[in-house]
Structure formats: C-alpha cells, structure tokens
Amino acid sequence: MTSATIRPASDYPPGGDAFRHRHLTGIAQLTPWEISYVLDAAEEWVEMNRSGAAKHDDRLAGLTIINAFFENSTRTLLSFEIAGKRLGADVVNMHAAQSSVKKGETLIDTAMTLNAMRADAIVIRHASSGAVQLIADKVDCPVLNAGDGRHEHPTQALLDALTIRRRKGKVEGLTVAICGDVLHSRVARSNILALTLLGNEVRVVAPPTLIPPAIERMHAIPFTDMDEGLKDADVVMMLRLQNERMDGAYLPSPREYHALYGLTPQRLDLAKPDAIVMHPGPMNRGVEIDSSVADHPTRSTITEQVEMGVAVRMACLDILTRRKRGVPGWN
C-alpha cells in the first residue's frame, strides 16, 4: 500500500517512448520500464476506483472498444468492460457463441469486419495460441490480448505484478512459486516472463505431466515436489486446474491432485511467514486450494487481484489509445 514505489514521470522516456507498442499482445514484447510505466499508471486508477461515487473519467469519450471473446469468460470480460466504461468509452461485447464464427467465418474475416466497424481498440480472447497476433496484424486499431490459447495473458501478469508490488513494496528480488497446470496456462507463461524480467526468482511447481518441456530455458526452476517448491517463497501463485485435465490423461484424480499439490495451511507454512497467496480465479476450492487459505484475511490477495485487474486494464486502454486521441508526445 505504498506510493513510494511510483516513479516520477521524469524517470521515463518522454511521451510515446515510454511505451513503444501499438498493441499489447504479450509480456514478451515489453521492457522492464514499460511494465513499470503501466503499473504506475494503474495506481492512479486504483485511487479513483476507490474514491467513492464518481468513478468516472471521460478521456475515452466517443471511442468504441470491442471486446471480442472467442472463448468463454466471465471475469476478464467484465473487467475489461468496466475498465472501458469508467474511462467513458462505448464498449461493445461480442461473444463467439452468438457470432458468425460458429457459421464458419474465418478469424481473419471476423477481424476485417470488426475493423470495418471502426473500432478504436479491440480486446480479444481466443482459444488458439497466436490468434491475437494474427488479428493485430490485420486491423488498424490497437489490439489487447485478453488470453490466447496457452500463449499469453498479459493483463493478468500486469495485475499480478501490481498486486505483488502493493503488498510487498517491490516486485523484484522475490521468490515466486507458480503452482499447478503450468503446461496449459497462459497466465503462467505471462507471469514467468514478467516476473523473471523484473528480477525475481520464479519456480514452477507441478506434476511432471503438467510441466512444459524446456521450461528452465524461460529461467523458471521446475519442482515436482510442492513442499520443496514452496520453501521460503514470498509469493505463492496458484493456477486454475481445468476439470478435464483430471480425468486420467494428465492426472489420476482430483483427490490425488489435492493430496499432492493442493495448497493447504500446512503447506503454506513452508513458505515465508508473510508469504501472500494469489489465484487468477475461478478457483476449484478443495482441489488446488483449501478454502481456509483462499479466504485468509491477510495472506490471500484474490479479491485484490480482481480490483487491480480493472485498474491495470484502464491503464492499458488509456495508454494504447493515446496516439489515436492525439495526446501530445504520442504519435
């Protein structure tokens, strides 16, 4: 809860040089200072969002943001919608289930259609890795990746970094254990990239069937023993386990998973005494995380992550539309 971590504007390159991207497709494209710049910008929105009745800023008034979600989502879609509306934009949601995607229209055709509707920003979620980049290459407006396959989910990593920074006073030099289905997780990939880039030790803790090949080449340290992986961690980041992974293909059963990899109060005791517990949601209580841990009043950051999500997405929408809005220095 400290504003001491916010750098003065003079610490950053002037104008658009502080964030030199047209799109936000992944953490992989970002520099440490660009991440820091987004987090600092998000801090302002945290203040406004907490400030009582008038949670509104009209800087995006007149702009149209399309949330194109080709994969089901509740919380991320809601978070982006609220972020856009608090900035005064006209926000439209497109669900794949209601769209012509189901009628065989290709992704590119859908992208061209959205482009022709003169959107000022498009937020995309898609089940296929690389799908967001494919669309970004075809449209004229900024594209924000809200999760593509198992590739990246950059706003999740940014909101997680902001949550850690606010709780720990810094997001460097920490030990972070990312636990669960790392193989299929875009949240894990974006967090590994962001947290290693910012100078933290990142461990991945998972059953051997759910650890990606060559993960150490991403500078993450793999652990298949959860007790070892949690030892002296500052941050325990749990991942959601999809139910279909537990039918025998990757894991024998939910109860075996809970016995070996569930976050119980006893396991959490292995981490540092002030370690925080994170989860991107939605949770499988009693499988990957015990309710007593998830609801812990001081250590669980799960609702705070949701709050930071709105602020980070406001910051991203603001920054990426500055060129369009003709903000001085951004061209």
Binding site: A28, S129, G130, G149, H151, E152, P213, A214, M218
Partner: peptide, 15 residues
C-alpha cells in the same frame, strides 16, 4: 517439437 520455442509461444508439442 518439444523445446524452448514451443514452450515460449505456447504450442502443444511432442518429443
């Protein structure tokens, strides 16, 4: 193919 590239960009891979 299993390796750093497939893991980084999140593609299903085989050994």
């Amino acid at each position: 193919t299993d390796g750093e590239m497939a893991t980084r960009i999140g593609l299903a891979s085989a050994p």
